[in-house]
Amino acid sequence: MTQEVIRQIEQAYTLVEQANQRLHHIWGEHIIFRWEWWLALALTILPWLIWYIWRKKESTDRLLYAGFFVILVSSWLDFLGTTLGIWRYHIDVIPTIPSFIPWDFSLLPVAAMLVIQVKPQLHPWLKALLFAGLAAYIGEPLFDWLGHYHPKEWKHIYSLPIYALIYLAAHYLSKRNHHAPL
């Protein structure tokens, strides 16, 4: 790698650092402790409390396994969409994470875990469509309406197959029984 390429990379990182400092300043001055921030915080904590109470206790480990998969995939895709400028978030619970914590770390994984455990005899494709439809056509528009989320280059229909695939993969993982003792 040439010194010129390294210099250009350093300049790009400097711009990113400056942008993050600006976003942190805006967050500290105009976002934290507003009703939208409190709502985002509640939507980060309350779903996990609901899940803790209503989960099938004997299946806690397998549900968490599926839920953490949903967190990993959804937050990575969200980070990708944010950094590519496809959508933006206007309310962050924590300003250092570019994805929307209530959605990626709470609402999506908890919803997936609850859907997995409710009516387990129902076909996973039907549950995937239900999960995806609720997330794409109720969740996303609601957060857009609330001003938390702004899709710039994204339509809700694009999310439908992604959410369905995330659910199907989480469902598949929740059914695995091939764990050897350590």
Results as ranks from 00 to 15, higher is better:
Lys127His: 08
Leu107Arg: 05
Ser74Arg: 06
Val73Thr: 06
Pro47Leu: 07
Ile97Met: 07
Ile45Lys: 03
Ile53Val: 14
Ile26Pro: 02
His179Ser: 14
Ala170His: 06
Tyr89Asp: 10
Trp54His: 10
Leu63Arg: 03
Leu160Cys: 04
Ile32Arg: 05
Ile9Ser: 04
Thr60Ala: 12
Val70Ile: 02
Leu165Lys: 02
Val115Met: 13
Ile6Asn: 15
Ala112Met: 07
Ser99Gly: 11
Thr96Lys: 07
Leu64Met: 14
Asn177His: 10
Ile6Thr: 15
Met1Leu: 13
Tyr13Val: 00
Trp76Met: 15
Trp154Phe: 12
Glu29Pro: 03
Ile166Glu: 00
Gln3Arg: 12
Ser74Gln: 06
Asp104Gln: 10
Ser59Arg: 14
Leu107Thr: 09
Glu17Ala: 07
Gly133Arg: 11
Tyr13Thr: 00
Ile94His: 12
Lys175Leu: 13
Tyr52Lys: 07
Trp87Arg: 00
His30Glu: 08
Pro161His: 05
Ala169Gln: 09
Phe79Asn: 11
Arg22Ile: 10
Trp145Leu: 13
Trp37Asn: 05
Tyr65Gly: 07
Val93Pro: 01
Arg88Met: 04
Ala66Glu: 05
Tyr158His: 07
Glu17Tyr: 01
Ile101Leu: 13
Ile138Ala: 12
Phe100Trp: 08
His171Gly: 02
Ser106His: 04
Leu64Trp: 13
Leu129Ile: 14
Gln3Gly: 07
Ile116Cys: 03
Ile6His: 15
Pro95Ala: 02
Thr2Met: 09
Leu129Cys: 12
Glu58Ala: 15
Glu58Lys: 09
Glu4Met: 05
Leu107Pro: 00
Gln8His: 14
Pro95Cys: 03
Glu36Gln: 15
Ile166Tyr: 03
Thr96Asn: 15
Ala42Gln: 06
Tyr149Arg: 00
Pro181Ala: 10
Phe143Gly: 02
Leu168Asp: 02
Leu39Val: 09
Leu72Tyr: 05
Tyr167Lys: 01
Gln3Cys: 05
Ile138Pro: 03
Lys175Tyr: 05
Arg7Tyr: 13
Ile97Cys: 08
Leu23Glu: 10
Ala19Tyr: 08
Trp125Val: 13
Val16His: 08
Thr83Glu: 00
Ala112Ile: 14
Gly67Met: 12
Glu140Trp: 03
Pro109Leu: 01
Tyr13Ala: 00
Ala136Thr: 05
Trp54Tyr: 12
Leu122Cys: 06
Ala132Gly: 01
Leu72Phe: 13
Gln11Thr: 06
Ala111Lys: 04
His90Tyr: 14
Val118Cys: 14
Ala135Ser: 15
Ala66Asp: 06
Tyr13Asn: 00
Val70Phe: 04
Val70Glu: 03
Trp37Ala: 02
Lys119Gln: 09
Gln3Leu: 09
Leu84Ile: 00
His148Met: 10
Ile86Arg: 00
Ala136Pro: 08
Leu49Gly: 11
Lys127Gln: 11
Tyr89Phe: 15
Pro181Thr: 12
Ile32His: 02
Asn177Met: 08
Glu29Thr: 13
Pro120Phe: 07
Ile97Ala: 09
Ile116His: 02
Gln3Phe: 09
Met113Gly: 11
Glu17Phe: 01
Asn20Pro: 00
Ile116Tyr: 02
His24Arg: 10
Ala112Cys: 11
Gly28Lys: 06
Leu63Lys: 06
Leu41Gly: 10
Ser99Met: 09
Leu173Asn: 08
